[in-house]
Design a protein around this nucleic acid. Structure first.
Lengths: 273, 273
DNA sequence: AACCAATGTATCAATTTGGTACAATGGTAC
DNA sequence: GTACCATTGTACCAAATTGATACATTGGTT
């Protein structure tokens, strides 16, 4: 069990460990063949999950260090930037086709601390010269993803030994400007909280009103009145009640709900809260 | 007077022509010294102005062609990406410190049509080899700017002979994916229409309620009820009435308004409409 | 002086929201 | 079984917001 400020949760499985080795090989290959990547541009993914009434973010830790970072990567010359982001996401979670959205490009001149960069390279046993492609200046394009916490299989890449969930409110220190990137991702997520996109991607197929409200509260960072939330959600007409009831702990059993199939047009501008 | 689908307006002045020559020199210099730019990344600016109750966008036309494009440029290794965007904006408008915000990065593999790229290079008398830095793959980071239409001085760069305003609803065909970029800029602008950021940057110091409403309607793409708009705007408490009245054409003279000085904190999430 | 269209304001119904009350319920304790 | 209880679903009311219409004001035209 990985612990970090009490926030991490170990999702690594045997299956993940197998993938880990595969990707490690692939990664070493990349370093030799940097010509295949678009120079100066990297991608970083803020992968959100929801569990225990908390927003989680997927992080990797570089091998032989205690340095945490967002899962990231580079763009092959032959692929679209969005495809690259999808590939990176899939490599870390083993999930295909999940909700993924670009939210901002980070271009500060000094955003990558070169001494940290070197420390990482040395720790993973790569001596890189000062004109190595990786030590050149990069801008990074941020994507956030919304994934089903239980379905994702966190999988380290060749430069990391851990890939795991961390609670958003107890993140370890992150390398470079990654803390800023997470913050911005959350901001953009709030800005786009409307319509059902958020819930239907962060929650399992069916869920209780309580879980849905807790998700909203977590993202918005404020408490909502239970009864009014209930009313509002039902009035939007995007939920349907699953007729089976819940059976678990004490007290009254809540209904389960699921999101209705959506028409393609998005009500992107409608405000919910 | 530049005409294009009836939408263009010629803002070029004698002052602008002087700047034009200066920048042309600067640009030629750049082409030789491509080492000074960050590879693979360009910037394109969607510069919005408001005039005649219409949203305008600043465009450039490449020399000896009829090809229109967004004003753009590259990032010096020594400058932040945001600074580069500011510099590009200033070069085309002679305006400093205007409202400028990054909105999206465009990374499709084939987003730049190489045959068009070559045609432009030839037209401005540059023969570029297929491995010239400019013919490599680029992602472009989009920024939108909100400027006072009357204060901007549209100024072509070295590769263009015209820099001018075009009505958003009568744009000429644009090169590459620039039409998509404009569309996305508008979308993001709508998403962020809240608080007074928009108005205070697209309108002159003082303005009538009618002008403000017209701006909102243009950006949102829908009609609003005059009386309710009036009420809402006043209730937000962000306007102050300038005691002088208006004196112009026929009928009753409207009050003039201006935006109050804003506290630094932004009410970014508050919905207005 | 009569008129007119644009402007500022008032008003009212419909809707939405914030907040409280209360009945229903599925389990626990005894 | 019965009393109890925290949680859930729903009802309800007052306050605030919004949609829509009416109307008084006014600067200039004819």
């Amino acid at each position: 069990m990985v612990q970090w400020y009490g926030g991490c949760w170990n999702g690594t499985t045997i299956f993940a460990k197998k993938n880990f080795m595969e990707h490690r090989e692939a990664h070493l290959e990349h370093l030799e063949e940097d010509q295949r990547f678009l120079p100066s541009v990297s991608i970083d993914c803020v992968i959100f999950g929801f569990h225990d009434n908390q927003l989680k973010v997927l992080l990797v830790r570089f091998r032989n260090t205690s340095l945490w970072a967002l899962p990231g990567g580079y763009i092959y010359l032959s692929e679209d930037m969005d495809s690259a982001a999808n590939r990176i996401l899939e490599e870390r979670t083993a999930l295909k086709g999940v909700y993924l959205e670009q939210f901002y490009a980070f271009g500060q001149r000094e955003r990558v601390d070169q001494s940290v960069q070197r420390a990482i390279a040395e720790a993973i046993n790569k001596s890189i010269s000062s004109d190595h492609w990786i030590s050149k200046r990069f801008i990074t394009v941020g994507y956030y993803a919304l994934v089903d916490f239980l379905k994702a299989i966190p999988t380290p890449d060749g430069s990391s030994d851990i890939c795991d969930w961390c609670s958003l409110d107890a993140l370890p220190p992150l390398v470079f400007d990654h803390a800023v990137i997470v913050q911005k991702a959350l901001e953009m997520l709030r800005l786009r909280l409307n319509n059902n996109l958020i819930g239907s991607n962060l929650l399992p197929e069916t869920f209780t009103m309580q879980e849905l409200q807790s998700l909203y509260e977590t993202i918005l960072g404020e408490k909502l009145l239970r009864t009014n939330f209930h009313r509002k959600m039902l009035s939007l007409g995007i939920l349907e009640r699953v007729e089976k009831k819940f059976s678990g702990r004490a007290h009254k059993a809540p209904y389960l709900y699921r999101f209705k199939e959506q028409k393609e047009e998005r009500l992107f501008l409608e405000k919910v809260f």
